[in-house]
Simulated scan of single mutants.
Amino acid sequence: MSELGWGFEIKTIDEAGYIAGIAAGYGNVDHGGDVIMPGALTKAIAGRATVPMLLFHDHKRPVGAWSKFVESDAGLHVEGKIAIKSEAGRDAHALAEARALGGLSIGYKTIRHRFEGKTRQLHELALHEVSLVPVGMNDRAVITHIKSLVEDGGMPSVREFEEFLRDAGGFSKSMAAAIAAKATPHLRGEPEVKANPDDFWSAIDAALKS
């Protein structure tokens, strides 16, 4: 089975674990030189009731299931539920809320493909699972909206955020410190940034990409 990181925009995530977003972007070349062509997943999702939701492609850590699939010009939209009563599900939910999970990666098998220059066009894929991961291979793989934190104001302290990134998110001590440093003014609610929560996410995205 192959793994491929694509665009992931969480549109909603709530305390009950319901989550929705874009699982695969169509027509966007990732850093590995692959591009999913429109319709490549049509057969894979036809008649499918669920697709496993994993954490970090670890088949020993299922965290829920995707149960709704809708294709558009942008890609494959998915909806599902994180099993927050399980230990792995609680970890995944907490990581998503803390924005430590910034990408989604599909586990798949290539059925049909062809090359256009150095770009491999994926025309038909078998979809095995969709995982939550820290950073996808594609530049679009960035969470842009976490309702429970931004709108409800559930910001952690600087120390809590750094420890969370290191202990739960799997980031190195130096990386966690760098990300937390970017977020410090926002986490402390300093006057010049308090009214601009979007700047917080921009700072985290910049730190992750660097």
Rank of each mutant, 00 (worst) to 15 (best):
S2M: 07
G5N: 05
G5R: 09
F8D: 13
I10Y: 11
T12P: 00
D14V: 05
E15D: 12
I22V: 14
Y26Q: 04
Y26D: 06
H31S: 11
H31W: 08
H31K: 15
G32L: 07
V35D: 06
I36T: 13
G39I: 00
R48M: 03
A49G: 00
T50C: 00
P52H: 07
F56Q: 12
F56L: 10
H57T: 00
W66Q: 08
V78G: 06
K81I: 12
A83I: 07
I84A: 14
K85E: 11
K85H: 06
E87K: 15
E87W: 00
G89H: 12
A92E: 01
H93D: 07
L95G: 08
A100S: 13
S105Q: 12
G107L: 09
Y108M: 12
K109E: 04
I111W: 08
H113C: 09
E116G: 10
G117W: 02
L122E: 06
H123F: 04
E124T: 05
L125F: 07
L125C: 05
S131V: 11
S131K: 03
L132E: 02
P134S: 07
M137Y: 11
N138C: 11
I143H: 07
H145Y: 10
H145G: 06
I146G: 05
L149A: 07
L149D: 01
E151D: 15
G153N: 10
G154V: 03
M155A: 14
E163G: 02
G169W: 04
K173F: 06
S174M: 02
A177K: 15
I179M: 08
A180D: 00
R188Q: 15
G189I: 06
A195P: 01
A195Q: 06
D198C: 00
F200A: 10
F200E: 08
A203L: 00
D205L: 01
D205S: 07
S210T: 10
